[in-house]
């Protein structure tokens, strides 16, 4: 089993952080999951790496890296939406 490099672990931690943001709005997250099964799969596998539930093969990190951009876009959209709502409240 390959050693998890610091870079790989950092990648998984970034995805884990995005997942934590994404799951705050569970309704929207379920809708997103319906359309993006692969992203959800690798986001949760990144969480599993962080929590020491799995021993990854190197190719898993390649797959996780491939979802980062799109997942990050989704999470930032959620943030923008939250900011707009806060402004409207004020």
């Amino acid at each position: 089993m390959a050693q998890i490099t610091a870079d790989s672990m950092k990648l998984c931690e970034r995805i884990e952080s995005l997942l934590a943001k994404a799951t705050k709005d569970s309704g929207a997250f379920v809708d997103f999951a319906e359309e993006n099964e692969e992203i959800i799969k690798y986001a949760f596998l990144a969480r599993a790496v962080v929590r020491g539930l799995i021993e990854p093969l190197p190719e898993l990190f390649t797959s996780i890296a491939s979802i980062e951009e799109e997942f990050s876009e989704y999470a930032s959209q959620l943030e923008d939406h939250d900011d707009e709502e806060e402004e409207n409240d004020e």
């Binding site: 799969k41 949760f44 596998l45 599993a48 929590r51 539930l53 799995i54 990854p56 898993l60 797959s63």
Partner: peptide
């Protein structure tokens, strides 16, 4: 997610489960 992607039915899994 980790179960469905690691069982015998998965042809080439990208990971194995730890004891935890």
């Amino acid at each position: 997610v980790i179960s469905k992607n690691s069982g015998v039915e998965v042809e080439s899994s990208e990971f194995t489960l730890t004891k935890k």
